[in-house]
Design a protein around this nucleic acid. Structure first.
Lengths: 68, 68
DNA sequence: TTGTGACTTGTAGTCCGTG
DNA sequence: GCACGGACTACAAGTCACA
């Protein structure tokens, strides 16, 4: 559940930046297909990768989890 | 870095509840030694377990990550 | 441009102890 | 009550071909 919600939140924020999955993943040194699966909520992502993504999105972890 | 900060935050919150590592870990069905290592910042914990801990601490994920 | 199944490797996570 | 270790199993990380 939390995985799906988090994935959706990440996608929203990425789209707000106007970036494709590929461009975004590249910008944070993450594999495109791995990032795609995270957005889809298929992965039980760990804190280090969550932080990596939050940094790429230019938001705090707290903001990333707001209302989730 | 984030792991250590998160571990410290978890410890603070646990102590506010007046619970030992063992009692808290038991209450959320988590292994005692694993929980100890998380508090120490030695583990790259996954989102499902982070959520588990937040629930045990009775706080939101957003609050757990406040200022981190 | 995004989604997915399959795969290897490293480590998350469990269970048994100790001082 | 906590830190730490050994030994194990489950699963996340990371990559690829293909759609």
């Amino acid at each position: 559940m939390i995985r799906k919600k988090l994935g959706q939140r990440i996608k929203e924020k990425r789209l707000q930046l106007g970036l494709s999955q590929e461009k975004f993943a590249l910008s944070i040194n993450m594999d495109r297909t791995y990032f795609a699966s995270v957005e889809k909520g298929k992965r039980n992502i760990s804190i280090l990768n969550i932080e990596k993504i939050a940094k790429g999105l230019n938001i705090s972890l707290s903001e990333l989890f707001q209302e989730l």
